[in-house]
């Protein structure tokens, strides 16, 4: 045993006796006898759960669902959808932006959504 401080009960007992020697010698014998792997690691690796892989259809399915949702909203609230489209057109028309600016904004928005999705996936594990 490699600790010095002991409780009063233990202090009252002899500091080291024959049993300490016996237990330590037994432990030394056991430690010196390395247990061969003999396929143990392979069995453990077979027993651990397979890695989580996302199915290939997941991404197109998500895009399709978003499309269906937007189409559904547009059909359910045609006036609101028209207002949004008109305002977006007016905004873009009133403040024309260059092609590079639009690409930059799209890239920024894309990176932002990917980061958010990656973060959400990591935290939901």
């Amino acid at each position: 045993m490699s600790t010095a401080p002991t409780s009063p009960d233990i202090d009252s007992a002899p500091a080291r006796d024959w049993l300490d020697g016996l237990l330590e010698s037994d432990a030394r014998d056991d430690r010196s006898a390395y247990i061969a792997d003999a396929g143990f690691t392979a069995r453990v690796m077979q027993a651990i759960p397979a890695p989580l892989t996302l199915p290939a259809w997941r991404k197109p399915a998500v895009v399709a669902l978003w499309g269906v949702a937007l189409a559904g909203i547009s059909l359910a609230l045609p006036a609101a959808a028209l207002d949004v489209a008109r305002e977006a057109y007016r905004l873009l028309g009133a403040h024309p932006v260059s092609l590079s600016g639009m690409v930059g904004a799209l890239l920024f928005a894309g990176a932002l959504s990917w980061s958010a999705a990656a973060y959400a996936l990591r935290t939901s594990e």
Binding site: M1, S2, T3, L23, E24, D26, A27, D30
Partner: peptide, 8 residues
Amino acid sequence: CYHNDLTH
């Protein structure tokens, strides 16, 4: 404490 030689 003995076999694994851990502290308390």
